[in-house]
């Protein structure tokens, strides 16, 4: 048995457990937890049975199993980056709103400086 087929399933199990903890502590939605769990289960599957990736690859018209895995990884990474980018953008907007509101409700007067 190759090293990656031991190492990757261990990492995947740890990841699934962490995602479950995040869900149980209400820091993550159920749907996000399920989607991440499915992804990590596939990592376990392809680590233990590398040949399985070829079957999935053929489904999408890709010849090599490894190519399929690389493409999936790229798609997932791009999606994650997009989500992070959107969330960051929303957070920036929220911060702007708060900073603006705080400033508007606290006009600086000379009395403030004298205190």
């Amino acid at each position: 048995m190759l090293l990656y087929s031991i190492l990757f399933p261990i990492i995947s199990v740890i990841a699934i457990v962490l995602f479950l903890i995040r869900y149980l502590t209400e820091r993550q939605s159920l749907i996000t937890t399920i989607l991440w769990a499915i992804l990590w289960l596939f990592v376990i599957l392809f680590s233990i049975f590398p040949k399985a990736s070829e079957n999935f690859a053929r489904l999408f018209g890709i010849t090599r199993g490894l190519d399929f895995i690389i493409i999936v990884v790229f798609v997932v990474l791009f999606y994650v980056i997009f989500r992070l980018f959107s969330k960051l953008d929303k957070l920036q907007d929220d911060v702007n709103k708060i900073v603006k509101e705080v400033a508007l409700s606290n006009e600086i007067t000379l009395d403030d400086e004298d205190e």
Partner: peptide, 21 residues
């Protein structure tokens, strides 16, 4: 009249704050 943003948010937000004020 003086208003102060707690952290730097750029000329866009500062001007908007001025317009709102």
């Amino acid at each position: 009249h003086i208003y102060s943003l707690l952290i730097n948010r750029g000329v866009g937000v500062a001007t908007q704050t001025g317009f709102d004020a």
